[in-house]
Nucleic acid binder design. Structure first.
Lengths: 129, 129
DNA sequence: ATGGACGTTCCAGCGCACTAGAAGGTCAAG
DNA sequence: CTTGACCTTCTAGTGCGCTGGAACGTCCAT
């Protein structure tokens, strides 16, 4: 399949696919005789993997690390486990940070609710943010 | 007070203060005879406001909107409440996404522990993200 | 009068994840 | 044979929130 078809199947753009290839997230695609990129069905799964990673807030660099290990083809379980342990630690920290942030924002929001809008003066803005 | 003093009081840098002025977050400062910026105490409160907004995940553009409304002499209570509501929604989604990701990674980690090394395929990584 | 800490402007760049546009090649349908 | 959709490479720009550096001015103590 050519780049445009893959892009629409994966819900992205041809620009992004070439960018991913340049960034090492996608392996250099096979080429047709005329130089067009020619993808197999596995590309869709790989892009889904990238999309889910992005949706969960991973950077392209992080996603690439995981893919590189998989692509190495010789990745022993132990190395994968180490990577995943690191990932879990980071994830737990991120989750804790987000929870703390949510609590702060919720408190701010509650303060804004309790202020009487009729009495709200421009200067008051500092009270609840 | 001069820019360096304000910066250290507000816990930021002179670079950032000039950047904020250029960005319209701080009004152009008064100047001394020699051209130095000269700030009043109100600048500290304004920078605290910006800092709290940033800590809540608001962009400088969003914070600027609030400040513009306040500077125009209108109370931005309602606008701030809306901003915070949007922020809470985004935050909840991010937290849910991260929790789901964590569960997936933890499952993969458990599988990596229990898997027979001979059966540990690199491709397995993509099942869990 | 000199040194050093502070201030000024302006221009440039970073890291991230794309995104835009120019200039050209390929291919199937009409 | 031409049109138009699609593809190629390349360079460069976007938006965010700063950050760095050059080149120069000001102020105060010694």
């Amino acid at each position: 399949m050519r780049i445009g078809e893959l892009a629409s199947l994966a819900g992205t753009t041809t620009k992004t696919l070439r960018f991913y290839e340049d960034s090492g997230l996608l392996p250099p695609a096979e080429r047709t005789a005329s130089g067009y990129r020619d993808y197999g069905d596995d590309a869709i799964a790989r892009l889904d993997f990238i999309r889910r990673g992005r949706a969960a807030g991973l950077t392209l660099a992080e996603i690439r690390k995981v893919l590189d290990i998989r692509d190495a083809g010789t990745a022993p379980c132990r190395h994968v486990a180490e990577l995943l342990d690191d990932r879990l630690t980071t994830l737990d920290q991120q989750i804790a940070d987000l929870h703390a942030l949510r609590a702060n924002v919720a408190q701010l929001r509650a303060d804004a609710t309790h202020a009487n809008p009729a009495e709200c003066q421009p200067e008051d803005v500092c009270r609840y943010l």
